[in-house]
Write a protein that binds this DNA or RNA. Structure first.
Length: 712
DNA sequence: CAGTGAGCGAGCTTCCGCTTGACTT
């Protein structure tokens, strides 16, 4: 064997083997093979930031196997991803394996026979400028993380962590919480009027359409349905319009008294259509999935965590069902587009196929685009085909179907809606005038209310047939069906519907909305979104309650500390500026070491200053609202290395503590006490009796029944 | 299978980004 090819992943290795044949041995590196040591800084700041690279323990075995495979070969081909990290992996591989042999870098953006052939016929050198950009990124993150964290140990609490990414994620959650807590509800009222456009003289059978856009359920992908209610709705000819103006001025109603006044006036008004506007609106499909958008959609539509989404998609990927799941690209291969277009034409309908394929562009400025978008590898494989196959469960199938639908929909025709807005004027009628008079001629100039009704009719469902709209976009569009109306048409008031409302605070972040925000800020990468969410929870900086992130007192304290002294580093734009400089390094317009020095020198000064002058931070005391059973003092909530617990405020005189363990619906088989979730020192969860240490019951698995077992 | 907080002051904690298994607890 004369040729060894190294790629990152075993799946990519298998695919490549098919194209390259038996003349090449292909091995996977399993990601990076060298890194800075975990146990120390590993950056010599006095020697021009020279990084100290080692082979991490868990990579030793793989590297030894690679070394064995590289023995005696003539050519080492480095076929890692065409991006910053991929180039660095190639460089490290060359350093570990490449001595005394020819080393070639091959770059391809899609795994097709022609692209691979082209790459192997035109090998390159390793681009050291791109490697330097990666080294700068790596060293910067190490310096920030490994300098700030120990400062937190000293000034706040041991074991804490800070970093360019996690500290910003935490800051977002803390600041949002403050907005929520500072928010003052304001009362406002909405007055709606149910009106009838019935006209006994004329009927318009079939003129109205009732449209129900399948409401998005968390547990299923709603199918878009279009129902035509032939005449059913028409008989009523009623609709709802909301009060918006009085005498041409916007109305903001703040209380019940004003509402009652308007309602009283409106009761005796005449209602006339003043304006009907209709416009055609086109809705374009979403781009195919990237990691971030897949995680968001799986959370919003399927209720899956980012972690679960990644585990499921990994399995789909390894079985060859989808393309690579860690990507920031929305690009699609030419073959995939050809295949899906033919699928749409033959299986969905010619009307759904656009004349030309849709090309999507990446929105995120920091996208590195080493992979395709996430899509099914074969559009002809439907989710149903996975049923009962291999180790796939229901969730694998649901996720696959989501990916499949999003992909097919992205190459379908846009949906076309007719949006109608009807303005209605309401004013006091003058009784002397005959009812046959033209309504428009007797409009008074003051005391005129304007009401507006909006409706939407889908003329062509297009891609919505498959994918539907995203939840957050739902609701802004009224979906009522409006009867056919014309200007100056007289309407009849059926009922006035005043309702009290309160302004709502901004929503707390969910996994989905936080990932979305981080991606917008260019913070984090496809491989790190899910781990970031885990990190800030493992440190007890935030808690997830009913799917929403809420900071703990610890998280708030850490954020306040960092904001006070290192606001520039947890600035939302810090990463964006860093990326600009990394790009300059990659283009050869800047050197990495001076770039790091420019950052580090003031940072180091600040570190010294804070270390010398800052007081140890006292965390805000959180009372538990319970008295200590031993000494009667207040219990307080503390955060220890296993999470929250209750402790006596009289510490250290009183050492009483209480666990805050999560209860499970089960009773102890020994003494009938509640079973609670506990953790070993190493963090593994187990189930134990609440009455420990009196009762010694413990189990790795969840005890099933809440009924105590019979004594034999 | 099991505890947290103070200080005493061992020995250790910590970053981001790339990728999958695993010398068994």
């Amino acid at each position: 064997m004369n040729n060894l090819v190294v790629v990152e992943s075993p799946t990519k290795a298998r695919t490549l083997q098919k194209f390259l044949g038996s003349k090449y041995q292909i091995e996977a590196s399993m990601g990076h093979v060298r890194d800075l040591p975990k146990s120390e800084l590993g950056v010599d700041v006095d020697k021009d930031f020279e990084p100290q690279y080692i082979i991490p323990r868990d990579k030793k075995k793989r590297v030894n196997e690679l070394k064995k495979a590289a023995k005696g070969i003539n050519t080492l081909w480095l076929a890692t991803d065409p991006d910053r990290e991929g180039e660095a992996i190639a460089w490290h591989l060359a350093g570990v394996l490449g001595e005394d042999k020819s080393t070639k870098r091959v770059v391809f953006h899609e795994i097709t026979e022609s692209a691979i052939k082209e790459a192997f016929e035109n090998p390159k050198e390793i681009d050291i400028k791109l490697v330097d950009a990666q080294q700068a990124r790596r060293v910067l993150d190490r310096l920030v993380g490994y300098k700030l964290s120990p400062l937190l140990w000293e000034k706040v609490k041991k074991g804490l962590s800070a970093g360019r990414v996690q500290s910003v994620a935490l800051r977002l959650i803390v600041e949002r919480e403050r907005e929520v807590l500072a928010f003052k509800n304001e009362e406002y009222w909405v007055i709606e009027a149910e009106l009838s456009a019935a006209d006994p003289a004329r009927r318009h059978p079939g003129e109205t359409q009732s449209v129900s856009i399948g409401s998005e359920r968390k547990d299923s992908i709603a199918e878009f349905t279009l129902e035509r209610s032939e005449g059913l709705q028409n008989d009523k000819k009623t609709f709802v319009a909301a009060l918006i103006e009085k005498d041409g001025k916007k109305l903001a109603i703040k209380n019940k008294e004003d509402t009652d006044g308007h309602v009283k006036n409106l009761k005796t008004c005449e209602y006339v259509v003043s304006k009907v506007t209709q416009r055609e609106v086109r809705r374009f499909p979403y781009p195919p999935f990237t990691t971030s958008t897949l995680q968001q959609a799986a959370a919003n539509r399927l209720g899956m965590s980012a972690k679960k989404t990644m585990m499921l998609s990994q399995a789909l990927y390894e079985h060859g069902l989808i393309t690579y799941m860690r990507t920031d690209s929305v690009n699609l291969s030419a073959q995939a587009i050809t295949a899906v277009r033919s699928y749409i034409e033959s299986s969905i309908g010619k009307a759904y196929l656009p004349k030309v394929p849709r090309i999507f562009k990446s929105k995120s400025r920091n996208a590195q685009e080493a992979h395709e978008a996430i899509r099914p590898t074969d559009v002809r494989t439907q989710g149903l085909a996975l049923r009962g196959k291999g180790d796939f469960n229901k969730d694998h199938i649901r996720l696959y179907e989501l990916i499949w639908k999003r992909f097919v929909a992205c190459q379908m025709n846009e949906a076309v809606m007719d949006q109608t807005a009807v303005d209605v004027k309401a004013f006091q009628s003058t009784s002397e005038e005959s009812p046959s008079a033209t309504p428009g001629t007797r409009k008074p100039t003051s005391g005129v209310y304007t009401l507006r009704a909006t409706g939407s009719i889908v003329k062509f469902d297009g891609w919505l047939k498959l994918y539907g709209k995203d939840i957050e976009e739902d609701g802004d569009e009224a979906k009522q069906a409006l009867p056919k109306m014309s200007e100056n048409q007289q309407l009849h008031l059926i009922e006035l519907l005043p309702s009290q409302h309160f302004t709502q605070p901004p929503p707390r972040y969910t996994e989905a909305s936080l990932i979305k925000k981080l991606e917008e800020l260019g913070i984090g990468r496809p491989s790190t979104y899910a781990p970031i969410l885990s990190t800030i929870q493992e440190r007890f900086y935030v808690e997830k309650i009913e799917r929403k992130f809420i900071p703990t007192t610890l998280g708030i304290t850490v954020t306040d500390f960092l904001m006070k002294y290192f606001a520039d580093i947890i600035d939302y734009a810090f990463t964006a500026r860093m990326e600009d400089e990394l790009d300059e390094i990659a283009r050869g317009e800047r050197e990495w070491k001076p770039t790091i020095r420019t950052f580090y020198e003031p940072f180091e000064k600040k570190l010294e200053l804070v270390e010398r002058t800052a007081q140890k931070v006292k965390m805000e005391v959180q009372f538990a609202g319970k008295k200590c059973p031993e000494c009667g003092k207040e219990l307080i909530v503390r955060i220890g290395k296993f999470g929250k617990f209750l402790a006596c405020s009289g510490f250290p005189d009183c050492k009483h503590t209480e666990g805050l363990e999560e209860k499970v619906n089960a009773k102890c088989s020994l003494d009938g006490g509640d079973i609670v979730i506990r953790h070993t020192r190493r963090g593994k969860t187990f189930y134990g009796c609440k009455n420990w240490p009196v009762c010694k019951f413990a189990s790795w698995t969840k005890p099933k029944s809440s009924v105590p077992e019979l004594i034999k």
